[in-house]
Amino acid sequence: MSVFDGVDVRGGPGDGPVAFGAGLGARELLAAYRRGLFPMPAADEYASAYNEARYEPAVGTGESSLLPGGDDPYALAWWSPDPRPVLPPGGVRLGSRLARRLRHRSPWWTSADRAFGEVLDRCAEGRQPVWLTEELRGGLARLHALGVAHSGEVWEGEELVGGVFGVAVGPVLSLDSMFHRRPDAARVAVADLGARFAAAGGRLLDAQWDGPHIRSLGAEPMPRARYLAELAAEVPVGPLSGEALPVARLV
């Protein structure tokens, strides 16, 4: 049994939170991602009060669910956008300019799951609003220990210059956030992690939020019903390779 069992994800809002409340433990996070939900904690009490004022009518009509757990349910929102921006894991666009740079003796190399905690920290730096809270990072770290949450890293020598992290459920890898300290390093991190996921048998990268940058990577909108069907598909996916690899293999 899960606290999300009664949540109507298919019929929930596509442009607002599907549910509020519960917690950010590993069990709750995994149950949510398995149902096509991802969390957005409120940055502070003012953001929580905004959620309550903005979305309480939807909760009152049953359009959104209010879940048990937590002193302030509106401090934690669960989203499932419709449509959902997705892309094939082996088909992330790098662009011709970046491809030429990577092909000609780039100093970068890549890895996976080598620096998960550091990638989380870098993704949280300077972001407003603050959604990657300490509590969420703790839950994600536990999922990483279970082999469910993964990070992709781009290195220049021994310096981490780009990264991305997400949660894998069956054939879908849901990408939560990315960062870069060099131009295009985040794009390379997504392409590399996607290639590793494809090699393991994965079928879909979920970018969660649509936008110009995500579209530039090759993402296309997918109706939520189809996305949920892909998420539930019984596809064998093996372990992700964490091997250190040259970026030139991506072009």
Rank of each mutant, 00 (worst) to 15 (best):
S2C: 05
D5S: 13
G6N: 14
G12F: 08
P13S: 13
G14I: 01
D15W: 07
G16T: 07
P17L: 00
G25V: 06
E28S: 07
L29P: 01
L30A: 09
R35Y: 02
M40E: 06
A42S: 07
A42K: 01
A43R: 03
D44P: 01
E45Y: 00
E45I: 02
S48V: 04
S48T: 04
A49R: 04
A49E: 14
A53N: 04
R54M: 10
A58W: 15
A58L: 14
V59K: 05
G60Q: 13
T61I: 13
S64G: 00
G70W: 03
P73G: 08
Y74P: 10
A75M: 01
A77I: 01
A77K: 04
P81K: 00
P81M: 02
P83G: 11
R84H: 03
P85K: 06
P85Y: 09
P88E: 11
P89G: 03
G91P: 06
G91L: 03
R93K: 14
L94S: 10
L94P: 12
L94C: 14
A99Q: 12
R101K: 15
R103Q: 10
R105G: 12
P107W: 06
W109K: 00
S111W: 06
R114M: 07
G117I: 02
V119I: 11
L120Q: 07
R122Q: 12
R122L: 13
C123W: 09
R127S: 04
Q128Y: 12
L132K: 03
L132E: 07
T133I: 04
E134G: 15
E134Y: 05
G139F: 00
R142I: 02
H144Y: 12
G147Y: 02
V148A: 10
V148W: 00
A149D: 03
A149Y: 11
E156I: 06
G157C: 09
G163M: 06
F165L: 05
V167Y: 05
A168N: 01
S174T: 14
L175W: 01
M178D: 08
M178T: 14
M178S: 14
R181I: 10
R187S: 06
V188L: 12
A189L: 08
A189D: 05
V190K: 01
V190T: 11
G194Q: 10
A199E: 09
G201R: 02
G202I: 00
R203C: 13
L205Q: 08
A207E: 09
A207N: 08
Q208Y: 07
Q208S: 04
I214V: 15
R215C: 04
R215P: 00
S216D: 12
S216P: 00
L217M: 09
G218I: 11
R226S: 13
A229P: 11
E230V: 02
E230D: 08
E230R: 13
L231K: 05
E234G: 12
V235C: 15
V237K: 07
G238W: 07
P239R: 11
P239C: 02
P246I: 09
A248L: 00
A248K: 10
L250F: 13
